[in-house]
């Protein structure tokens, strides 16, 4: 196969769209600047889309039917990857319950007693009163998370 005939923008664009998809979870999610708004991923996706577009143009400029079909399939897959990311982030990420009954500023936080990771029962009152570094705590930060299990 002649190296010149490899449609490199097409394949590079596809590879970039896949790598960009996973890069959010592998890299960018760890930094609040790139996590809260995925601008790094959006930029990379734009580059990937341009490359895919260049690949399609190149394929359709040639007279080989096979390369047109390949370019169409690869570009579609690349766009699906990009679309899936955008959907998961901007639409799926908003599927959360409204939590209208959650405690509000000024209200007393509901009490609870739950097991810690060693199986020991811990109450909110204990969390509020057990000293931190020998001093009475000024506050408790409750962080509810989805869980990994």
């Amino acid at each position: 196969m002649n190296v010149r005939r490899v449609n490199w923008p097409l394949w590079l664009g596809f590879l970039l769209s896949v790598v960009t998809f996973f890069s959010y979870f592998a890299v960018f999610v760890w930094y609040p600047v790139t996590r809260d708004f995925p601008w790094a991923n959006l930029l990379l996706f734009v580059v990937a889309a341009v490359l895919l577009f260049m690949g399609v143009r190149r394929a359709f400029a040639s007279d080989r039917r096979g390369s047109k079909i390949v370019a169409t399939i690869v570009t579609t897959l690349g766009l699906v990857v990009i679309g899936f990311f955008l959907f998961a982030f901007f639409i799926g990420g908003r599927w959360l319950p409204p939590s209208k009954g959650a405690p509000q500023v000024g209200q007393k936080a509901p009490d609870f007693t739950l097991s810690d990771s060693n199986g020991k029962a811990v109450s909110l009152n204990e969390l509020l009163s057990t000293p931190i570094n020998g001093k009475a705590p000024k506050g408790v930060l409750l962080v509810f998370y989805r869980g990994y299990w």
Partner: peptide, 30 residues
């Protein structure tokens, strides 16, 4: 059933002083 992400800062009397109920699962309190 699981918890949606949420953060509450309580003062020493157990009164809520700050709430963060994210609208997007990917966005968390810093």
């Amino acid at each position: 059933d699981i918890a949606r992400p949420a953060e509450f800062l309580l003062d020493s009397t157990g009164t809520v002083r700050w709430v963060h109920l994210t609208e997007n699962y990917w966005v968390r309190a810093r």
